[in-house]
Design a protein around this nucleic acid. Sequence first.
DNA 1: CTCCAGTTGTTGCAATTACAACAAAATACT
DNA 2: AGTATTTTGTTGTAATTGCAACAACTGGAG
Lengths: 145, 145
Amino acid sequence: MIDRLPDDTIRTWARLVRVQQDLLDHVEADLKAAGLPPLVWYDVLLELVREPDGRLRYRDLQARLLLAKHNLSRLLDRLAAEDLITREAVADDARGACIVVTAAGRQLQKRIWPVYHQAIATHFAGKLSGADVKKLGDILDKLRR
Amino acid sequence: MIDRLPDDTIRTWARLVRVQQDLLDHVEADLKAAGLPPLVWYDVLLELVREPDGRLRYRDLQARLLLAKHNLSRLLDRLAAEDLITREAVADDARGACIVVTAAGRQLQKRIWPVYHQAIATHFAGKLSGADVKKLGDILDKLRR
DNA sequence: CTCCAGTTGTTGCAATTACAACAAAATACT
DNA sequence: AGTATTTTGTTGTAATTGCAACAACTGGAG
């Protein structure tokens, strides 16, 4: 219980919220301008592509994405409709759903990355020194706990 | 045009996105747990309360909130439905709408603040040193441009 | 004055997200 | 085994957000 936060702490918080929203808006706009799907699609595909066998259980995917389960379910519906992923049964758990990237899914992930990479460079990395990035990383690490 | 960002820069970006989302989720959850409306409501009320006469033109409010105009229009519908704001005509511009906080709006803003303040203290300020906050502020400032 | 481009704010409609309830299967407990 | 509890994932429905078109108005050029 803290009595009263200093004004500059509050200002920094406000700025964090604001800047972050602004950054994401710009990145999303860049993706859209390139005719690409929103960032969450990429997040899902990336998590799957990173796995050695290109598959993850639903709940594990959910845990990594910090997405409410019902939202993920519908997001996957949309990805499946585009043949970017498929749902398979899990061997030892009949409830489970295994999410698998398709070849098209891998291809799309590869296609999004350069655009996303460029956006990160433009809106984020290009504005900071190496030392800034390092320091920011340390600070974010503390916030994560 | 940057050739290829270093891995740790990309990791820091990813962490920024993740941590920020996580922080906001927690803050929103705290507000909801206290039976309070979402953060945007507070943002709108705060902008208005800060004005000496408790009013702002629609477009100015929009510019400060980084909200798409149609979204703000509907958000204001909801606030108006709870009698937290009212819309008034602007003297010298018949198109314009002036958004005015009501007494109930001011009261709600005052009621939200302690909860929001506590959430900032818990999830943000409490995890960082004063120097961290200062450094973070500087970095965010660079990103803003 | 008259027309035309730009601004301001709202609205119809589609897509996405949130909440609540649910079915099905696994796990724990007696 | 038999029953309650928890986990896992989906779905119906309502709220919110995004997109495009719109009406009303302003301000400036001819």
